[in-house]
């Protein structure tokens, strides 16, 4: 297995140059009135998708950018996102 990731700035590079940043769960919920359970749901709980998921990566040993990609967790391969997002 040899993951490669396509950085929007630096192009396709070895996966080891990058740092994983979690499932893409969207922006954090507003703090006001957030219950411990709702907070935990955002911070700690995951969908644990065995398949394609959208996730954050940082080009740590490169330009430093955070960006999201789609990756198949059963194959550890970057894949194209859903069609609608391509435009």
């Amino acid at each position: 297995m040899a993951l490669t990731i396509t950085c929007p700035i630096c192009g396709k590079r070895s996966g080891y140059e990058f740092r994983f940043g979690g499932e893409d769960k969207g922006p954090p919920p507003q703090a006001a009135g957030l219950t411990p359970a709702a907070w935990c749901d955002y911070v700690h709980r995951n969908n644990c998708v065995a398949g394609v998921q959208k996730e954050w990566w940082c080009h740590r040993q490169g330009c430093g950018t955070w960006f999201s990609i789609y990756r198949d967790t059963t194959k550890n391969l970057e894949v194209a996102g859903p069609q609608s997002e391509d435009v």
Binding site: R19, G21, G26, P27, W56, C58, R60, G64, T65, W66
Partner: peptide, 11 residues
């Protein structure tokens, strides 16, 4: 630290 700050401002 750089990636920490960028991560928490990524949206």
């Amino acid at each position: 630290t750089s990636e920490w700050i960028r991560y928490h401002t990524r949206y």
